[in-house]
């Protein structure tokens, strides 16, 4: 049962839930379950090709992973997945 930690700005799409516990066994599967349970999160999380948006980072523990390359990575009950928005801006 991996845990996905949802960042503050996306909690409006998860009924203010901070995390999702998932029985999925891959990173890809865990993210797919998040989108299935909370469809409104999709447009802020995934691009038009169904890939994680470029300004959203995904961490497993303290390590950043690229879900486009590492989608098949195994997750288990000890895995903590964090969704982290990259913050930027300016003129």
């Amino acid at each position: 049962m991996a845990k996905i930690y949802i960042p503050t700005p996306l909690r409006k799409f998860t009924n203010q839930n901070r995390e999702l516990i998932t029985g999925q066994q891959t990173l890809e599967g865990a993210i797919a379950q998040l989108v299935e349970e909370y469809p409104d999160i999709k447009k802020n999380l995934l691009d038009e090709n169904g890939e994680i948006r470029s300004y959203i980072k995904v961490y497993i523990g303290d390590e950043e992973v690229d879900p486009r390359k590492n989608g098949a990575i195994k997750v288990d009950e000890k895995t903590e997945i964090s969704i982290v928005p990259a913050i930027a801006g300016g003129l």
Binding site: P9, L10, K12, N44, G89, G90
Partner: peptide, 19 residues
Amino acid sequence: HPAIPSEHDRSVALPFFSY
């Protein structure tokens, strides 16, 4: 520059947060 969000600010902004 004025304290007004730019198009760049808008394009990378997140919901919920105050800027």
